[in-house]
């Protein structure tokens, strides 16, 4: 076991936090998710350490936890945050642009978690289908269809909104 938990946490924690923020859309929820994940990782460190890629393994744990946690009010929080932004109609281009981006974010929040995770892994983490499938524990074909369905949904909503 070359890597210790400490070394892993030192080198990977920032990246995990970024990933968690993209998944959850909220820094506080992301912190909770990462904390919960890292506690589990410590509990089972020997098993994590002997896996082919501790990093991928931990990402998988975090992703599963995100997909499975029902209580999380992430989407509600995001929607609530997106809602009181009818300042959308405000005057400056900048505000409009910001609102437009928030719109993407809010739409993302409305997608099923598995699709969201697939989109984050593809368009934020830039991972190939095979690795995404590994993390999500599904077939490569499923990853592709999740991503394309996710994109379709976003596209449709955005077009409708415009």
């Amino acid at each position: 076991m070359a890597v210790t938990y400490e070394e892993f946490a030192d080198s990977r924690l920032s990246a995990l936090l970024r990933y968690a923020v993209m998944l959850t859309g909220d820094p506080n929820t992301a912190e909770d998710l990462v904390q919960e994940t890292m506690l589990r990782v410590q509990l089972h460190w020997w098993r994590v350490a002997r896996s082919d890629s501790p990093d991928a393994y931990v990402r998988k744990i975090l992703t599963n936890q995100f997909i499975e946690s029902r209580r999380s009010s992430w989407w509600r929080r995001v929607l609530l945050r997106a809602d009181p932004d009818p300042v959308v109609a405000s005057s400056t281009d900048h505000a409009a642009e910001t609102a437009e981006r928030d719109r993407v974010w809010a739409l993302l929040a409305g997608l099923p978690r598995g699709q969201r995770a697939a989109l984050v892994l593809r368009y934020y983490e830039d991972l190939p289908d095979r690795e995404i499938a590994e993390i999500l524990g599904c077939a490569v074909g499923t990853v592709r269809s999740s991503i394309s369905r996710g994109l379709d949904a976003l596209r449709a909503e955005l077009v409708e909104a415009r």
Binding site: M22, R101, L158
Partner: peptide, 12 residues
């Protein structure tokens, strides 16, 4: 849409 998605992530 892919560009917009990347931009949204980046902003976040």
């Amino acid at each position: 849409i892919e560009e917009e998605l990347r931009a949204a992530f980046e902003r976040q």
